[in-house]
């Protein structure tokens, strides 16, 4: 594991405003298009359908007319873990997934993965997907493939990379311009860029000047399953109490922010 360099360069993360998210699905398509995600004729079985970014529909469980729904986009959480490791990273037997301390991004290397699926068992967010099938693009559609992301073969696990290749491209541009570092807006994930409602904000969580820094401190901001100690880097914002409560498990008597 690449823990050689412990100094933290960046800690990329996201704040998703659930008040603004309309569940339109644009982030999902932008992600699939950016990351060469394969598609099958029948994708209605959501348990073998690869969607790095998946928009969940949450219901408040009340009856008509008090029913309420909320959409929750779920990329990979890029957990840091309380013990310095993500749930999935420490379990991978072949170091096909790794935590990069310079970016805070959990990588997945498809050519290293041999498909044991232990990481999927470890991830409570169902953010990891297995390639049960050979990816097939209908004739002509392989032209759509983005050269910055390698298509995956059958038998390996894949997941959201926070569009890491976009970071690589931004760095390339910076180097070519004689710079060492990139500006915040030079590197944005495909979903962030695509969101028509501007519900997703992406940036360095440690950068006090960036919007994500102040937003993550907002009292209405929460993370998914925080209590498990996964320490995710994706934050959610909602003004609705039931939505915030749905983000984690609570015993009946517990208040939402324990």
């Amino acid at each position: 594991m690449s823990k050689g360099s412990k100094h933290k360069d960046k800690k990329f993360g996201m704040v998703i405003d659930l008040d603004k998210c309309t569940g339109c699905g644009a982030c999902m398509v932008a992600c699939m298009s950016e990351n060469n995600v394969p598609f099958k004729e029948n994708e209605s079985n959501k348990l073998d359908s690869i969607t790095w970014m998946r928009v969940y529909k949450l219901e408040n469980g009340k009856s008509f007319p008090d029913a309420d729904i909320c959409f929750l986009p779920r990329p990979c959480m890029h957990c840091e873990g309380d013990h310095g490791h993500a749930p999935c990273v420490s379990v991978c037997p072949a170091i096909a997934t790794d935590y990069d301390h310079k970016t805070g991004i959990v990588s997945q290397i498809y050519t290293r993965c041999f498909g044991c699926r232990y990481c999927m068992a470890a991830c409570p967010y169902h953010a990891r997907y297995f390639n049960w099938w050979d990816p097939v693009w209908p004739e002509g559609m392989e032209k759509l493939l983005n050269p910055n992301v390698s298509p995956r073969m059958r038998g390996v696990v894949e997941k959201c990379s926070f569009c890491h290749h976009r970071y690589q491209l931004a760095l390339d541009k910076a180097y070519a311009d004689g710079r060492d570092k990139i500006e915040e807006d030079e590197y944005q994930t495909a979903c962030t860029q695509a969101c028509p409602a501007n519900a997703i904000i992406f940036g360095d969580l440690d950068n006090k000047k960036h919007a994500v820094y102040s937003l993550k401190k907002n009292p209405n901001t929460f993370r998914l399953l925080e209590r498990l100690g996964t320490n995710p880097k994706v934050y959610y914002h909602s003004s609705r109490e039931w939505v915030r409560r749905a983000g984690d498990n609570y015993l009946k008597h517990e208040t939402t922010k324990a």
Binding site: G4, D100, S107, V149, Q168
Partner: peptide, 13 residues
């Protein structure tokens, strides 16, 4: 040169 082999994603896509 850098004192570190680098992270996986540094060279993989």
């Amino acid at each position: 040169e850098i004192g570190d082999k680098g992270s996986c994603f540094q060279c993989h896509k």
